[in-house]
Design a protein around this nucleic acid. Structure first.
Lengths: 201, 201
DNA sequence: GCGCTAACTGGCCGACCGGTCAATTGCCTT
DNA sequence: AAGGCAATTGACCGGTCGGCCAGTTAGCGC
């Protein structure tokens, strides 16, 4: 079963289409992408796209599903290799999330497009993730290592939204006067955030 | 010069087109909007759109310019009626910004679309705004009322991005387990943020 | 080998896209 | 009163969009 010598390979064809589609959708959004352009990029005929995915909309869904699955798997993996729920774990999680977004700019843009569409079909997986994270924070609060007068879900929301927006709108605020690099910003954000969630006597 | 009895009123026509265009662009983004649909919504002919704005792209620019000018004027007005630079001013500014975004969802979406386009043509006005805000924070830091080991621009970035993303991705986070209302989230965010920027002995 | 299925092709389609243009009409100036 | 000009109209354009379909061909089970 050598794929190099085969003239037909539906799996590979599907993958080629998905890859090219993801690149174009991430770059331009759903409606700006033309199937002819996509066909050229994926080196397949337009008809083949319809054969494998049905329609442009269905292809868009497939692209989003694949990307989000990758995202959730990466996040879940992060969860599994974590240790005791304490402040350091929270700090490390935020940093890991920030760096994940930095290294996966496509995911950030895909999220942004789907948000603008009002799409929330990925909420099942997402709720799982957020629920697990919130539970950790709750445990850390109970152990007295984080302040208890804030909703754990809101704590997650604050750092997720800051990280997301940092990369989503980078083209915008990177020109702000005195704005620092990714790492400089993360450092200052961590100072503010960790200080903000630390319990007071 | 009664506009009601006039059969022609270019100013009003322009405004009608701009209004309808803003609504559609905000909703669907640039490329998804069709001029025919827009013409119907604005109750003008398609040719009239071209007569007044030249092309779809130029109309998009005009819509963005008008909206952003409104945005900057609102922000600048907020600046002018402010008092002494202290922590309370910062708190009030964040709350005002949050509520402004809540009351102007179109602006949030317009920002999001332009970010995805990589458009940063509004940076002049924006830099002014951020520069002025950062200067305030710097003064407050000098007076010992805010911690001094963080970049003032980053402080602004943190709350601007959190507020922006809250409304931009609302369709997404609002279904997270235990997620609170706008006000409940703002309250928790303010707790974390203000505690995070308060100086320590 | 043989035949069935699915992968794949090229040509085609109607719809409709953004944009143009010549002609008409209302308003302002003088 | 008239002339000029911008506002406005509707017919029209070439291009291309997403999608379809009849036909061809490769691979796989029998």
């Amino acid at each position: 079963m050598n794929r190099k010598t085969q003239t037909r390979d539906p799996e590979l064809t599907r993958a080629r289409i998905l890859d090219a589609a993801e690149e174009l959708f991430v770059e331009q959004g759903f409606s700006a992408v033309k199937l002819s352009e996509l066909a050229r990029a994926a080196e397949v005929t337009k008809s083949l796209i319809h054969h494998h995915f049905g329609s442009k909309e269905q292809l868009w869904e497939a692209v989003k599903n694949r990307a989000f699955e990758r995202y959730f798997q990466a996040q879940m993996a992060m969860f599994e290799e974590a240790g005791e729920p304490d402040a350091l774990l929270l700090r490390r999680s935020v940093e890991a999330y920030f760096h994940f977004l930095r290294d996966n700019p496509g995911v950030v843009r895909l999220f942004a497009w789907t948000h603008l569409e009002g799409d929330n079909h990925c909420s099942d997986l997402d709720n799982q993730l957020v629920g697990a994270g919130a539970e950790w924070i709750r445990q850390t609060q109970r152990r007295g290592l984080l302040r208890s007068d804030v909703n754990p879900t809101h704590v997650i929301a604050v750092f997720v939204m800051t990280c997301t927006q940092w990369f989503e709108a980078k083209c915008h605020h990177q020109h702000w006067p005195d704005m620092g690099s990714d790492e400089a910003f993360l450092e200052d954000f961590m100072k503010i955030f960790m200080e903000g969630v630390t319990p007071r006597k």
